[in-house]
């Protein structure tokens, strides 16, 4: 049986007793002495850079796995912009979201692959979690429900712009919630790349939320903003 759980539960589940897929094996940093035996500075630098200096945890893996699906949904709805009559401002925003989040998906997949973790495809999958022997399917924070997706897909022109901005603000806000949950978790965010990546997601999406709020305000008030004002 598959349920959807309220988002608020997710933070607790992500790192709690429930076994999240993909299964997580915390790693330990390699023995520096091994690296020290390598012959050239290039080899040492590469060995060290490839290794996890600080151990990563199940929460890190969960974050990097689930953000892939989260980003994938943002890309799907951004790709609707050209066919749904979006305004030039929303088209440009959508273009940049696609560019940014595609690259970030690559970063997350590479991080997981390098740690021999299952690498989710870039599809807006609900996360499946096992709890009390039952499988639960849940959306990551901020992800659009099927109903919201249908509503947005049916909208055209100014109505699409408005819904897109509203939905993307929700979506981005969810991503910042995921970052906060990560950093509130014991042992998480020690890995340098996870820390940088999650921090970048946080500042980039916070900045974009402010920009979208401004665009939405202008749209709501029937005002056309010049490109240079947001």
């Amino acid at each position: 049986m598959r349920h959807r759980l309220p988002l608020a539960l997710l933070g607790a589940l992500a790192v709690g007793g429930c076994g999240a897929h993909p299964g997580a094996t915390p790693a330990t940093a390699p023995d520096p002495a091994t690296a020290g035996r390598l012959a050239t500075p290039a080899a040492i630098a590469k060995a060290r850079a490839d290794s996890a200096r600080y151990a990563y945890t199940a929460a890190d893996i969960h974050f990097m796995s689930s953000m892939i699906g989260h980003h994938a949904q943002a890309i799907i709805i951004s790709r609707w912009a050209p066919t749904h009559g979006a305004s030039p401002a929303v088209l440009r925003l959508a273009e940049r979201i696609i560019n940014a989040q595609q690259d970030e998906i690559g970063t997350m997949q590479q991080w997981l692959r390098a740690r021999q973790q299952p690498v989710p495809d870039a599809r807006p999958m609900a996360m499946t979690m096992k709890m009390d022997g039952m499988e639960h399917e849940m959306l990551m924070p901020g992800m659009l429900t099927d109903e919201q997706m249908k509503q947005l897909d049916a909208a055209r022109g100014a109505e699409f712009d408005k819904l897109f901005l509203r939905d993307m603000i929700q979506h981005h806000t969810g991503a910042t919630v995921m970052v906060k949950q990560l950093f509130d978790t014991y042992g998480a965010g020690q890995d340098e790349l996870v820390f940088k990546f999650a921090s970048d997601v946080n500042v980039d999406q916070t900045t974009e939320i402010a920009r979208m709020q401004k665009m939405l305000a202008a749209l709501t008030l029937g005002i056309t903003l010049p490109n240079s004002t947001y």
Binding site: Q213, A217, L221, G222, I223, T229, Y230
Partner: peptide
Amino acid sequence: ADVFGESMILPAGF
């Protein structure tokens, strides 16, 4: 209206 620090002239349609 002052929105996000911008002075915006509201259209009559609004």
